[in-house]
Simulated scan of single mutants.
Amino acid sequence: MVQILQGKDITLAQLIDEFGLQLADDENFFSEWRYDLPELSDLEKESLNEVKAEYLHLSKYPILEPVVKMVVLSPLLRLAGFYQPPFYIASEQEVKISSEDE
Rank of each mutant, 00 (worst) to 15 (best):
A90H: 11
L23S: 08
E102I: 01
K69M: 13
D101Q: 10
V68G: 01
L56K: 12
R78D: 08
I63N: 01
D9H: 06
G20N: 03
G20V: 05
L21G: 11
K60E: 15
I16C: 09
V72G: 00
L76E: 05
I89N: 07
Q93N: 09
I63Q: 02
A13M: 08
E100A: 08
Q93F: 06
F30M: 13
L58A: 09
Y83Q: 00
M70F: 04
N28E: 11
G7S: 13
P66F: 00
L5V: 14
E18R: 14
E102T: 02
E44Y: 03
S98P: 00
L79S: 00
L58S: 00
L21N: 09
L23C: 04
G81K: 02
K60F: 04
T11E: 03
D26L: 02
I4D: 11
F19V: 08
R34F: 03
I4R: 14
Q3A: 14
Q93K: 08
A13C: 09
W33M: 15
E94R: 04
K60L: 11
S41K: 04
L5T: 10
I89A: 11
A80L: 12
G7K: 09
M1V: 15
Y88D: 07
I97G: 03
E100F: 04
I63V: 13
L21D: 11
D9Q: 08
L76F: 07
L77P: 03
L21C: 13
Q84A: 12
E27F: 07
P75W: 01
Q3D: 10
N49P: 05
L12W: 07
A13S: 15
E46C: 09
S59L: 05
E54W: 02
D17Q: 15
F30R: 12
F29L: 15
L43S: 14
R78P: 00
S41W: 02
F82V: 02
E54R: 04
R34D: 11
P62D: 01
R78M: 00
A53L: 14
P62V: 03
A53R: 15
E65D: 07
G20R: 00
E27Q: 12
F87Y: 15
E18D: 15
E100Y: 02
L58H: 03
D36W: 10
L48Y: 04
K45L: 13
D17M: 12
S99V: 10
E46T: 12
L15T: 12
Q84N: 13
A80H: 01
Y61D: 05
H57W: 13
E102R: 06
P66G: 02
K69F: 11
P86N: 06
L12C: 11
P66N: 03
D9Y: 06
S99Q: 07
V71G: 01
L23D: 12
R78W: 07
V95E: 02
E44R: 05
W33C: 10
E44G: 03
S31H: 07
I89E: 08
K45Q: 09
S98V: 08
T11C: 06
L64N: 09
G7M: 07
E102D: 09
R78S: 08
F87L: 04
V72R: 00
T11A: 10
P62W: 05
G81C: 07
W33N: 15
G20D: 06
A90K: 05
F29P: 03
Y55S: 01
M1C: 13
